[in-house]
Design a protein around this nucleic acid. Structure first.
Lengths: 118, 118
DNA sequence: CTCGTACTACGAGGTCTATCGTACGAGCAG
DNA sequence: CTGCTCGTACGATAGACCTCGTAGTACGAG
């Protein structure tokens, strides 16, 4: 196939320089999204959206993944019908050194402390 | 006056154990509040609300300080008519080790990079 | 007591967000 | 081609949020 990709099959991401701290923090201030990021961080590779067992419908899941992608927290691409997602560690570490690690540690710590779902 | 204190003169703060990461991140996802915290972090001591020159009205300023206090990011107390505010470094460092420093570094870095107001 | 300053409380307007349901497109297995 | 699964788009709704203006309370100075 010579064409680039099917329409709607290409996903817009912000450039590294366009990533803003407030937007990232806002993206992570939602419990569902924080949980996605936490699970994503433990996975060695990228994960498909359907790998997650979230307490919301599929529509809402799509919405949350988009917020994460548009804020620059994750990178997404299609692989067949599956949409793979992975953390943008390199970009985030470059922009905000140590922030992602501290954030993930805090998220895991709180999760262990309060032991909510998942 | 026989009553304990004037109404509204006592400020409710969340206990350390009640501070939630999502709430903290949400509190810091607003540019005005992030700026308050950034200025607060450079001050050796506590500051009064009127020390800040924010691009919003006083009503809105009160609102933002309350969000920060109720999320557990800052501690506030009255000193005469002035309301003093200070970061809850000890509590935050205990709950989320390294997070506050990484956050402040990220905020300063972005501020230096983009050079917005203030 | 009176006044000025510092901050708050309340209500309103406009915007954003999270959530859902339903209907649809893209790819893969028969 | 026919289904099946994965994910999207769109519309709707209810709630939260930022902002403001006005009116009011607490404290200290004169």
């Amino acid at each position: 196939m010579t064409e680039t990709a099917a329409p709607g099959r290409v996903l817009p991401h912000p450039d590294r320089a366009e990533i803003r701290l407030e937007t990232v923090l806002h993206a992570l201030s939602d419990p569902v999204r924080l949980r996605i990021v936490r699970e994503l961080s433990t996975a060695a590779d990228e994960l498909s959206c359907s790998r997650f067992d979230l307490p919301v419908t599929k529509s809402t899941t799509t919405h949350h993944f988009r917020v994460l992608r548009e804020s620059g927290v994750i990178r997404q691409c299609y692989r067949g019908t599956a949409k793979m997602s992975g953390l943008r560690r390199d970009d985030l570490d470059d922009l905000f050194p140590g922030l992602l690690d501290a954030l993930l540690a805090a998220a895991r710590g709180q999760h262990a402390r309060l032991g909510e779902d998942t």
